[in-house]
Each structure stands twice: as structure tokens, then as C-alpha cells.
């Protein structure tokens, strides 16, 4: 797919090294990144291959790909695969999201 993920040699993206970088950084910066990374790890293999996952991420429209954080791109990729593989429907996910978190699931999610 000829999209912006295939970026080797593009100009204009600026500095690589973050300001104040000392060679280390936390593995995750937010709780949702922990959960998203783990959601990927427990669904890949069982429900999709790594190549299907990469393709799903690449299918993000270019502006979204370039502006959303890494693990948010993973969210788009995994959510799309779950729908396109028939494991959840767009309608039921939209309804679940609109309803907000359920108290029991809140505890299960361990969002301290």
C-alpha cells in the first residue's frame, strides 16, 4: 500500500532526539497505552496475524496516521480488525462506547 507509513526518505519531519533525552524513557506514559499494548498482545495470533495487523494500521487515512499517537494507531488497527473479522459489529461497539464504562468492568480494567 502506497501510504504515509512507507516513509523512508521523506524530508521535513525534524529532529529525532527528544529535548532533554538522557537515553531512557518510561515504557508507557499513560494507563491506556498499557491496556492497548496488552489488548494487542492477547488478540494477535488468536484472531489476526501480524501482517493483517500491519495492514490494518496502514489503512488509517494519512492525516490520522501522522497525527495520532502510536498506541492510538494500534487502537484503530485492532478495533478495525475486530469488526472486519466479525468479532464485534460497528453498531454494538458504538453502542457500548456511548453507554460509558460499566462499574464491574471498571474494576476489572484496574484503571488505578
Amino acid at each position: 500500500m502506497n501510504s504515509v507509513h512507507d516513509c523512508g526518505g521523506f524530508d521535513g519531519f525534524g529532529r529525532v532526539v527528544p529535548e532533554g533525552y538522557d537515553g531512557s524513557e518510561p515504557v508507557f506514559k499513560h494507563e491506556w497505552e498499557r491496556r492497548m499494548c496488552a489488548l494487542f498482545m492477547v488478540t494477535i495470533g488468536a484472531h489476526y496475524s501480524d501482517d493483517e495487523f500491519r495492514q490494518s494500521r496502514e489503512r488509517l487515512e494519512p492525516v490520522t496516521y501522522l497525527t495520532r499517537p502510536y498506541y492510538e494507531q494500534w487502537w484503530f488497527a485492532v478495533a478495525r480488525l475486530m469488526m472486519e473479522k466479525g468479532l464485534m459489529t460497528p453498531e454494538e461497539f458504538g453502542r457500548h462506547l456511548a453507554a460509558g464504562p460499566t462499574p464491574s468492568a471498571d474494576i476489572l480494567a484496574g484503571d488505578a
Partner: peptide, 12 residues
């Protein structure tokens, strides 16, 4: 090659 689907052959 320019497939609409996934490839690991980058444009460069």
C-alpha cells in the same frame, strides 16, 4: 510493485 494491500517492499 504498487499493491493496494500490504507489502514489505518500500517505495525507496
Amino acid at each position: 510493485l504498487s499493491p493496494l494491500t500490504h507489502t514489505r517492499l518500500p517505495r525507496y
